[in-house]
Nucleic acid binder design. Structure first.
Ligand SMILES: [Zn+2]
Ligand SMILES: [Zn+2]
Ligand SMILES: [Zn+2]
Ligand SMILES: [Zn+2]
Lengths: 154, 154
DNA sequence: TCGCATATGAGACACTGTATCATAGTTAAC
DNA sequence: GTTAACTATGATACAGTGTCTCATATGCGA
């Protein structure tokens, strides 16, 4: 689900650097590289995958990538998606239409579906309790078509 | 967020046993015990916690509990909740009002908030694609009040 | 009751995410 | 430009989770 706005990229970079400054963190070489690779990567990715890419291309260590992923998450550049799997999945916000995920309990595959803007009513509840919302996601879980058919065959 | 309906317990048991039958699985001693402990446990729990309880009380092995948790999940007796943490959290449906979760990116603590029944419009999208929905959950992520204050102190 | 299919237990295992700590890099003051 | 203080990084080691294997036990239908 890709858009294609060019200036959005810059906005993401600014968002990230602003977050770093506010948190008293430096805009270091490693942070820039991990940011770029996260943005370059279209679709969902795990920390492990990102770490492999960053290590192969730029010898950034696994520990560093895991650390930067947390900053990316808190800055709102990426969001965490998925559940049920033992891996955490991320995707960046840049270049993506708002959407949600439904995941199969068995094979852990996703279906993406578009946002319908009906979730806004939940916000006041949370804000009243002091929760600072960075994002949200609707998670449907169930069994995907493929896995249903596999059961029938068996 | 507890209700308190007694017959609901039986319904859950029937739901579980029906799922087992349909999947060609036996209604074994271990499966009954894990089911009972999952229901007895109010609030969220991890597989590991459930495994400890079942082992201490009934010498059910960790591997078995992990296996049964998957059946409980597929049968709809429990649902998986949470993300961001490295543990999977579950809660049973029995005796619970429908609700959603908002989780802090830092300390992984939850806020629960009630269901507002606005999520139904998403269903046709998924069903059209052959996805058999077992449940859904709205996930808000952000920073909780406590963690916001900790940052200010620092 | 027997024989076959399924379930279980014990342990090993792979992998993820975290912690530690020594080294390197960055920043700002002098 | 040098120095000192602070922050980031890399290279491990580590703990915990969820999975797998395979030998044994159990349940179930004939
Ligand atoms: Zn599937
Ligand atoms: Zn997506
Ligand atoms: Zn928190
Ligand atoms: Zn809950």
């Amino acid at each position: 689900m890709r858009l294609n706005t060019k200036s959005a990229f810059l906005q993401e970079r600014i968002k990230f650097e602003k977050h770093l400054s506010l948190s008293g963190l430096q805009i270091s070489r490693a942070r820039k590289i991990v940011f770029n690779e996260a943005i370059r990567n279209h679709g969902h990715f795990t920390s492990e995958e990102l770490a492999k890419i960053c290590f192969n291309k730029n010898k950034i260590s696994r520990a560093t990538v895991y650390r930067v992923v947390k900053d990316l998450l808190e800055s709102g550049v990426i969001r965490e998606t998925a559940f049920g799997d033992k891996h955490h999945h991320y995707e960046h916000i840049y270049d993506e239409k708002p959407h949600h995920h439904a995941q199969c309990l068995r094979c852990h595959e996703f279906i993406e579906f578009p946002d319908m803007k009906e979730d806004e009513r939940y916000r006041p509840y949370l804000e009243k309790r002091g929760f600072k919302i960075l994002g949200h996601e609707m998670h449907f879980y169930g069994i995907c078509e493929k896995c249903q058919n596999q059961q029938k065959m068996k």
